[in-house]
């Protein structure tokens, strides 16, 4: 499953540089995938919605691999001082799916 950031986030920004997939964005900021830029109202290519936040950092599910293929554990959760990077139970995915996403991102760019 992808990781999500809860409303406990204090916007310290510790997680953002740790993400190997550049899946983490500051609240209100547009996100990128390959050569395209997406805003709050844009549908994600994988059909995900409801993840954008104007108030605190957010994670794009299309780009989150839970750090599979890079690290043993999600790096955002490891560095978060308030433990607010948690598994998104609405987006449960197996390891094969996450690794396939990493491959896809490797090819198309993040």
């Amino acid at each position: 499953m992808a990781i999500k950031i809860t409303e406990e986030c204090i916007n310290c920004g510790a997680c953002e540089p740790e993400c190997p997939n550049t899946a983490i964005y500051e609240g209100g900021a547009n996100w990128k995938l390959g050569d395209k830029t997406f805003g709050a109202d844009d549908a994600s290519p994988d059909g995900n919605s409801g993840f954008f936040s104007n108030d605190f950092f957010y994670i794009v599910p299309d780009k989150c691999t839970e750090c599979k293929g890079f690290h043993d554990e999600p790096q955002c959760a490891a560095v978060c001082p308030v433990d607010c990077c948690v598994p998104d139970t609405d987006r449960v995915e197996d390891e094969a799916t996450l690794l396939a996403r990493k491959e896809k991102l490797d090819q198309m760019g993040r």
């Binding site: 809860t6 409303e7 406990e8 986030c9 308030v82 433990d83 607010c84």
Partner: peptide, 11 residues
């Protein structure tokens, strides 16, 4: 942000 407050205080 009361929801966030309660979660953090619990932790």
């Amino acid at each position: 942000n009361f929801k966030g407050a309660v979660s953090q205080l619990h932790k």
